[in-house]
Simulated scan of single mutants.
Amino acid sequence: MRKSINNGNITWLDEGQGATIVLIHGFAENSALWDIQTTQLKTRYRVIIPDLPGTAVVPLSTPLTIESMAEYVYAILLAENISDAVIIGHSMGGYIALALAEKYPSGLKGLGLFHSTAKADNEEKKEGRRKSIKLMEQYGADTFLRQTLPNMFSPATKSTLPAEIEAYVKMGMECQLPALVAYYEAMAARPDRTDVLKALRVPVLFMIGKDDNAVPLDNVLPQITLPRVSSIHIFENVGHMGMWEVATESNVILEQFIAFCQLSS
């Protein structure tokens, strides 16, 4: 069921019943990213899936920051009277989940970083985002996304999942250029949040693709020992899109982690 508040400026999907799971999408994505996971999880849990500002169904809010998007998700939790949840974010969604965990740790039962990192962008990464913005502005967002988004999949799955890659590109094209630029700027400006991992008292899930060029393995590995309780899964022949590239395996891991978080509270 799709719900909204604030005259449609805050929108989310609400599926299933039980303990609450929040799934946060990333750059050039929307709530449909999690359709496979939602179908599975809603049989046992209540699943909340926000559409972030700037997606096809939600106007872009300004100024847009990782922190403002965390407040956006928190507003949904308040509207639904949800006092605790397992929160899982993909890529930029993980940055938002970390910002939410930093400001509202008492409402967290578990944190999942799905191809994401607590580290801030280094200068090389920031420069890459600036170049991407220039390319989008020069050649158009659609051209940029069609060239870039297939590289979110590993070389192995590029050849086996052509329909999924095309669907992912079309999803990205639903975002307008101002939103894509705002997302890049927000990600580049975010602070390091490795201290958040150290401070958490709930389980943390790390889902890592061995062939992930966006959030490389060597970026994430130093972080896995920071939380008190970590669950680490490294996927072979997987890039940045494990929820699609290895959907069945990742669903099993998500369910096991969520169940563990319920027992750990």
Rank of each mutant, 00 (worst) to 15 (best):
M1C: 05
R2I: 15
S4A: 13
I5Y: 08
N7M: 01
G8R: 05
I10V: 15
T11K: 10
L13V: 03
D14G: 08
D14W: 01
E15L: 10
E15P: 02
Q17Y: 13
G18A: 05
A19D: 11
I21D: 08
I21V: 15
V22Y: 15
L23D: 11
I24C: 15
H25C: 04
G26I: 08
A28G: 05
E29K: 08
E29L: 07
S31K: 02
L33I: 03
L33T: 11
I36S: 07
Q37N: 14
T39M: 06
T43W: 00
Y45W: 05
P50Q: 04
L52C: 08
L52H: 05
T55H: 04
V57I: 04
L60G: 08
T62F: 07
P63S: 13
P63N: 12
T65A: 09
E67D: 14
M69P: 03
A70P: 01
Y72D: 09
L78H: 15
A79M: 12
I82M: 09
D84T: 11
D84R: 09
V86D: 13
V86Y: 08
H90W: 08
H90L: 10
G93C: 12
Y95K: 09
A97E: 11
A99G: 11
A101E: 05
A101H: 05
K103D: 00
K103Q: 04
K103P: 00
G107A: 03
G110T: 13
G112T: 15
G112D: 14
F114C: 14
H115V: 08
T117K: 00
E124M: 04
K126E: 06
E127V: 09
E127L: 14
R130V: 11
K131M: 12
L135S: 03
L135I: 06
M136C: 08
Y139F: 04
A141C: 04
D142A: 13
T143G: 02
T143W: 03
F144I: 01
R146I: 02
Q147D: 12
L149C: 09
P150I: 05
M152T: 15
S154K: 00
S154P: 00
S154E: 01
P155M: 00
T157M: 11
K158L: 07
I165V: 13
E166F: 05
V169W: 03
K170L: 09
M171Y: 01
V181M: 02
E185H: 07
A186C: 07
A186K: 10
M187A: 07
M187Y: 04
A189R: 12
R190P: 12
P191M: 06
V196M: 12
L197H: 10
V202F: 07
V202H: 05
V202L: 09
L205S: 11
I208R: 02
G209N: 11
D211A: 07
D211K: 03
D211F: 00
A214G: 07
V215A: 08
V215Q: 11
V215S: 03
P216K: 06
V220Q: 10
P222R: 00
Q223H: 06
T225G: 09
T225D: 10
L226V: 00
R228Y: 02
R228D: 06
R228Q: 14
S231N: 13
F235N: 01
E236S: 02
E236D: 12
V238N: 01
G239F: 04
M241T: 15
W244G: 03
V246M: 11
T248Y: 12
T248Q: 11
E249S: 13
I253F: 10
I253M: 11
L254D: 06
Q256M: 15
F257R: 05
A259S: 13
C261H: 01
Q262F: 00
Q262M: 10
L263I: 06
